[in-house]
Design a protein around this nucleic acid. Structure first.
Lengths: 346, 346
DNA sequence: TGTTAGCACTCCATGTCGGCGAGTGCTAAC
DNA sequence: GTTAGCACTCGCCGACATGGAGTGCTAACA
């Protein structure tokens, strides 16, 4: 995999990738010598290109069109050739300003991040909200709906509100509910859902006799409220940006991509993967096992609140994406969001 | 507008509309006589078609293609010719079963309705959740975030949860907050937000001296929490269905439609209009002043909870939509959702 | 030995042309 | 009032030529 490539080969591969990113069209030997001031003749470039093709960095769609980079080519470009410059202070400031966060609640923040991300990058923005199990408990509330049905409202340290309806076995009175609510709101704050779950599981193992009635009731209630995993929330913005990419202009490809973006489950898997590592991650087209987003690349970065990694944001676009532009944006945005989440939790 | 059309004219217009709905292609005189067993010759049909074109029901895209219905033609078809059959008991049952509502909270219900609506109709589903101002108060809760910032959680009679962050002028203590919360939760349930607002406005007119401190504090807090209009929530499902329509297969038209669907504000306006009337409403293409959804039709119906009209659901698709199929579905779904909302509120 | 110029070749994209099919409008006959 | 017939109009499609861009190969050059 770690193929050696001499300086000239690198230069030419870089030129091809950049031209292809700019034009979305196969790149010929001639146009390279013209556009990039190389003191080489087209013929020489052709030789090098033939070598690059043999090595798997390039391929030609037809005998006599130019060449386009393969995913391996893109990989090499990103890993070795691309130098990501940091954003200037001015750019950072401008980017920070595009976000209008004040007064928004968590969900709106996620939405807003996606919106801005898509707006500046000109691609489609993705944000996966903090995982439920990794959020830190701040407040819980029970509201009685019809007989036996309870609405549970859960607020995390970062202000994320989750709610669900549970069917309680017992028809609690308002007083009982209030006492349990108070109990839980005094006991649980500061713990993550994951911690609460393990503690709950532990305590349920002990003999019930050891608990007083209140504790027991509260535990059974919070078990119903917090044990189930809640579906991840993914916010997608600027899907129509996908339509602007020439490589997806045929109806067939569009349909495929839109189905993928709509179903969300593929995205969750992918973003989950990205969450594991830290810093900016790049998934290129076919590399992702799901060929559902064949032809797409994802640039993503996890962001974090107070306790460990909690969410992922990123930009999805064609493989032929402007990496040098988007990578620093994603990177900085993740930092920004992390800072905000930590501030919220003060 | 109320042009007279003899029986034959009606028959032929109906045939053309139906063929066009089925094929998305201009309809010729010949194919009509073939497909619909009319004992008329193509020539006769041609004469009638020429008349219909003069009257504005039809138009021909080219000198010598078939004819396609104008929006006026569609209108006439829907108003006069189309007979909407009710769903059979079996179909109703089947439709009811596709909805899996149990245990879902309000927001999920809206989402689910859109999903199913889009699934059965094969077009794009739209649901506008109950307007905030028309919902009936059930419960309110304040959670302190960082200094001075309060998360307000509001639960409606139907289990809809809304939340927002407010900046309180005073840094209330936990006790004060609890007292106010209790006060509000005892005073307000059963009133609609609209009613609460007017009452609030009225009482603020009176001299402040008449209220005790608790009341005054609670009023100022609930003013901050409930006075602002909250953005309407629109749930869109199955946007990719739009891509399947041949009339939107060109990239340009796709982009236009997707922008419209993404921005939501146009949709809110449109759905708002639909909410005013009761029963199924149909908006055809250019009739909607926003030509942003030119080439689209909307079939919608309001649904209601306990107090008056509260939301709208519908299906959006090409003008050439299968009205006879979709109208009863939208109609019945609206009834179904209304029933469920009323049941929730028992 | 590496680089370059030249040349024949391959393909795609574009434009033109003619035929075919579907449809129309008109007229004359029934 | 209805129908058959006919000339006419277009759009669609396949065939064909053309030009341009690119390639691979070979031979000459430094």
């Amino acid at each position: 995999m770690a193929e050696e490539l001499n300086q000239r080969g690198q230069d030419i591969l870089e030129a091809i990738v950049e031209d292809y990113i700019a034009s979305a069209e196969p790149v010929g030997s001639r146009s390279i010598t013209r556009r990039h001031a190389m003191d080489l003749s087209p013929a020489t470039v052709r030789n090098v290109m033939a070598d690059l093709e043999d090595m798997g960095f390039l391929c030609s769609p037809h005998t006599s069109a130019g060449r386009i980079p393969t995913s391996k080519g893109f990989h090499y470009y990103i890993d070795t050739l691309l130098e990501v410059r940091d954003l200037s202070a001015l750019e950072k400031q401008r980017l920070s300003k595009s976000y209008q966060f004040q007064g928004l609640q968590m969900e709106d923040v996620m939405q807003e991040v996606g919106r801005v991300l898509s707006g500046i990058s000109s691609y489609t923005g993705l944000v996966m909200a903090p995982k439920f199990s990794s959020t830190v408990f701040r407040h819980i509330e029970f509201v009685k709906l019809s007989h036996g049905r309870l609405l549970v409202i859960f607020v995390s340290e970062t202000g994320l509100v989750q709610n669900k309806v549970i069917e309680a076995e017992v028809d609690w009175s308002a007083q009982e509910l209030e006492r349990m609510t108070n109990y839980l709101n005094h006991t649980l704050p500061g713990m993550s859902i994951q911690e609460i779950r393990t503690r709950l599981a532990d305590e349920l193992q002990l003999e019930k006799a050891r608990f007083d009635q209140l504790q027991e009731q509260a535990m059974s209630l919070s078990k119903a409220a917090l044990m189930d995993e809640i579906e991840e929330k993914v916010f997608i913005s600027g899907t129509s940006r996908m339509l602007e990419q020439p490589e997806f202009s045929t109806p067939g490809k569009m349909k495929k991509i839109f189905h993928t973006l709509e179903s969300k489950e593929h995205l969750v898997k992918l973003l989950d993967q990205a969450q594991a590592a830290d810093g900016v991650q790049i998934f290129i087209g076919s590399q992702t096992e799901h060929d559902a987003i064949e032809g797409c690349s994802l640039i993503s970065s996890p962001f974090s609140g107070k306790k460990g990694a909690v969410g992922t944001l990123g930009v999805i676009g064609p493989v032929r994406m402007d990496y040098s532009h988007v990578i620093p944006i994603v990177d900085f945005t993740a930092q920004l969001v992390s800072r905000i989440l930590k501030r919220e939790a003060e």
